[in-house]
Amino acid sequence: MKEVTDRVAWVGAIDWDRRLFDSLVPLPDGTTYNAYLVRGSEKTALLDTVDPHFSDTLFSALDGVSQIDYVVSHHAEQDHSGTIPLILSRFPKAKVVVTAKAKRMLMDLLPIPEEAFLVVADGDSLSLGDRTLTFIHTPWVHWPETMSSYLVEEKILFSCDFFGSHIASSDLLATDRCRVHEAAKRYFAEIMMPFRSIIAKNLDKLSNYDIRMIAPSHGQIYDQPGWIVDSYREWVSAAPRNLVTLPFVSMHGSTRIMVDHLASALSKRKVGVELFNLSVTDIGKLAMSLVDAGSIVLGAPTVLAGPHPLAAYAAFLANALRPKAQFLSIVGSYGWGGKTVDILAGMIPNLKVEVLAPVLCKGLPKKDTLAALDGLAESIALKHRENRYGN
């Protein structure tokens, strides 16, 4: 147990070794499962639990705690709520505080009896005596049932995955702002970006509260929360940057020649470009680049008449994350023919983009292909200038 204030303690767990989340998301810095104990003069509330693999760590932190009256489940996923059944076995009189949607989901996911739940509406408050929790429904950050809690007297927002980051650290507070900013942006890119428009509304809702501290369910606590809120507003609502995100794969070097030429042509026209070799890239880094990009160009050689599987995966990822890029194109080499462009175009229905003329060549790129790549670079530069994309 680590004290956050004299009435709030961190009772979570640090996962130093985890390198993959949901068998999908890279975790280069591990993560934490944050749980908080709020002690009022009359009642005690546990805000979130931990991943079940760390239940012993949670119970060790709660050693000496004789009473828990409420267990607040901000989010039904296992890493937040998976240990609730064990908590209820230790504290059988505790009520599980949830949104109506979370109640249904938790009954599907975990062996929690219906009579254990206390459903709260948006804006409801719960008295702990001299401390008060107000519940703020924040749906789709990043599941439909998600909510946050606001500790009125302390002005602390317990934000669940909102503003979270995957960092394993023994430091409670986000003192290394550069490191936390990158981790939080990675977290936003991989998890939150598909829900940008709803997150913008949730940010507006939070502006009604005087927030002195933000305590998320992953990562470190923000004791100066203004900068992370401002970062979220930028990631959600700011115009794209004068940047091209260029994920690619090359089997025999031809597509790589095209990608390198296009990158140079873009740079000469003062357009930023970030290359991601899909055979080795960190997908989280690619997702972070997509947060800002004004354009996406996919480098895809043809395999068995269609796009290389890694290029198809990149298209699937971009379609799922729904970045705010407004322009897209495809470059690549083929051996005898195929439908690479048609297949990739059919994989991105969620992207509201203007598709610029793709550049494909048979075999090794020659002068006409390089000239077409120069033309594509010029088209992208013009589009970015017309839309006033900044750096």
Rank of each mutant, 00 (worst) to 15 (best):
R212G: 15
M105S: 09
G164V: 01
A314P: 10
R233W: 13
A45W: 03
D230H: 04
H74D: 02
H166N: 12
L27D: 00
L133E: 05
L157S: 09
V65A: 04
F188M: 03
T44W: 01
S333W: 10
V236M: 01
P85C: 07
G129K: 15
F327I: 08
S66K: 11
Y209D: 01
H74F: 05
A168Y: 11
L20A: 06
G375E: 13
L290V: 06
S170C: 13
K201W: 06
E115F: 15
V331L: 07
P111G: 12
R104L: 10
D282T: 09
D122L: 13
F135L: 06
N391Q: 12
P139L: 08
L62S: 05
R186T: 09
T57C: 07
F248P: 00
Q326N: 12
P26I: 02
L382P: 05
P92S: 14
D130K: 15
D124W: 01
I211A: 02
S217Y: 08
S237P: 00
E274F: 10
S207K: 15
L27M: 07
N387I: 06
K383E: 09
I330Y: 09
L356S: 15
N277I: 00
G337H: 10
W143Y: 09
G40N: 08
G123K: 12
G12W: 07
S60H: 10
H80Q: 12
L151C: 00
A320D: 11
A200C: 04
L304G: 08
